[in-house]
Design a protein around this nucleic acid. Sequence first.
DNA 1: CCGATGTGTTGGACCGTTCCAACGCATCGT
DNA 2: ACGATGCGTTGGAACGGTCCAACACATCGG
Lengths: 352, 352
Amino acid sequence: MSTVARSHPTIRDVAALAGVSKSLVSLALQNSPRVATESREAVLAAAAALGYRPNAAARTLVAHRTRTIGVFVLDLRNPIYVDILEGLQAEARRHDYRTIVVVGSEDRAAERAELEKLMEFRVEGMITLGHRLPEGGATAISAACPAVLVGAERRGRDHLSSISNDDVAGARMAVDHLVSYGHSRISHVTGGDNSVALRRRTGYAQAMTDHGLAADIACFDGEFSDEGGYRGTVRALASTSRPTALFVANDYAAVGAMAAAADAGLKVPEDLSIVGYDGISLASLRSIGLTTVAQPLHDMGVKAAAWLCTQLEDGMGGTRRIRMSPQLVVRSTTAPPSPSPSPSPPNLPADR
Amino acid sequence: MSTVARSHPTIRDVAALAGVSKSLVSLALQNSPRVATESREAVLAAAAALGYRPNAAARTLVAHRTRTIGVFVLDLRNPIYVDILEGLQAEARRHDYRTIVVVGSEDRAAERAELEKLMEFRVEGMITLGHRLPEGGATAISAACPAVLVGAERRGRDHLSSISNDDVAGARMAVDHLVSYGHSRISHVTGGDNSVALRRRTGYAQAMTDHGLAADIACFDGEFSDEGGYRGTVRALASTSRPTALFVANDYAAVGAMAAAADAGLKVPEDLSIVGYDGISLASLRSIGLTTVAQPLHDMGVKAAAWLCTQLEDGMGGTRRIRMSPQLVVRSTTAPPSPSPSPSPPNLPADR
DNA sequence: CCGATGTGTTGGACCGTTCCAACGCATCGT
DNA sequence: ACGATGCGTTGGAACGGTCCAACACATCGG
């Protein structure tokens, strides 16, 4: 009892059963005011009886609209994208747009093909979260439809909208916070040489300078990951004038930094204060309680969708670059430096 | 220079430019062997010149196939679904199927509508990760197309395929591991009363009984979350015969358990061993290093897609229930119980 | 009684593809 | 010289909807 012939009933089948023309069925289903209540009910009943579902392909073919926007997400493992995605979908829904999500993949060719399929589906707009578009991909996309890049800042030339948090300002907040606690030997574990990491580094350096701590600027190479944060922190702690506080490029790396501190026998925050960046939910876990600079992730998603939808609705082009302000969230990994600067450094972890 | 008229060129435009008929263009683009090389090149050149992209809607309308499978994901915040999703997409791609993802939402109506759209798109099959389908949704879906439920075990009646890990066996692994370390006072912090949590609890009880530890069975109400694990653990530690080891219902809750242990002044694993469940990447972070029962997440995704695709390709119906074996991953939160069972319990955290 | 007006319904064109039957034209065997 | 064969190409039907012009029919005002 399950070798069902999965052929879907069409509008004609409904029409036949209801004893009306297919045109009338169409009208009735869009509940046009000009169909007689009697025939409307007949149509509805017939449709229900047959389990009729309109065929989206046929509809979009004639309507020339899909009311769909494509979303490219670099990496679903990174929860910041999930938060953004959520905001974005809610807002799109409000404007009566559907979203279809493509997840970035190791296999660049497959990824590219997937994007191509999106265009063949005739998505009306695109939003990318974490852009690592195939070379020329950005312009290829923007040639086909309006697009908004989230979490990326575009340099000058191309006409793509973007929306991002102000990394420079965020980094300054982190430093300001630590300075307000009385720290001065504040080091930075970087997130690599991508543009986001670079901006955070810049903000760090600027803030230190502004506070008259230019001499204490010290950056250690890290990465946007647990491991990267661990490695950078090991090096930072081994340096001659050991920092009393660390600004780490993102939350994952900050968690790695906490592990490195523990391995070095340092207590957080007593012996070492740590500030992360991003505000992922991991940071708020009880056993972590990381002080961090939180991006307005949900809001960034909302704004991105809102702007894209107005563009689509008003048919107006034009590019906008929105930059939003992050917010410091103080938890339990920061505190004033301990009064007694431990004179003999405790056992350092083996450098790996 | 950017008020582009975004009207897409059609196959006719290409034909006109190449000086051939639209039929030939169609043939050439599917590179049929029977078009002259000369005209093929003309077509390709014209298509490139115009930036032609086939219209997926038109294609599927006539082809009656979308080569697309719909995926419903309950909650992207839970990384186990992301792992499954990844495996699933890779496998689907191998079979030349595309996937389109719908994310669960608070707004049940919106969620339902989204699912409905999926059917209107004529996805050929469905996979659901973490089923919380609108009532009757499961059967509604299976009436429209073949479906596979991942991470759910179906009871008897309906004809839906499912694939899950063997929670009972996994829970036994956790207990066996702790027993092999010499623990006997092993308590369980539960994951609530959903079916998955219930099965894990059953496995725990069975294993305890098998080891002759039936008298030591003790379950404390928790939840699949940081908070839930914390609360359950606080209660477990307050019990008269304090456990030396804890089997916690999932990894998030286990992380909460670690926090509770720390708040109680207990060291993990010296004073308390903890085993989680799921094998999410959070568990492998340096500062956590959780011993856990890992589900073969990626593989579950692969198997789900593989089975669905064969069903679609061979047109054969029939339901399968696959149950896969989880695997114990030993890290640093488990150890033999400390020889001196601390006589006076240390300061307990305030119950909150 | 007739034209105007309005209400409910209908056939058919159209959207952009794919596919099929049929075509023109060389080439070939007899 | 002529039918058969093959290759390359073509028009047109179909897919399942939407929408428009046109229709039948009743009602109404003058």
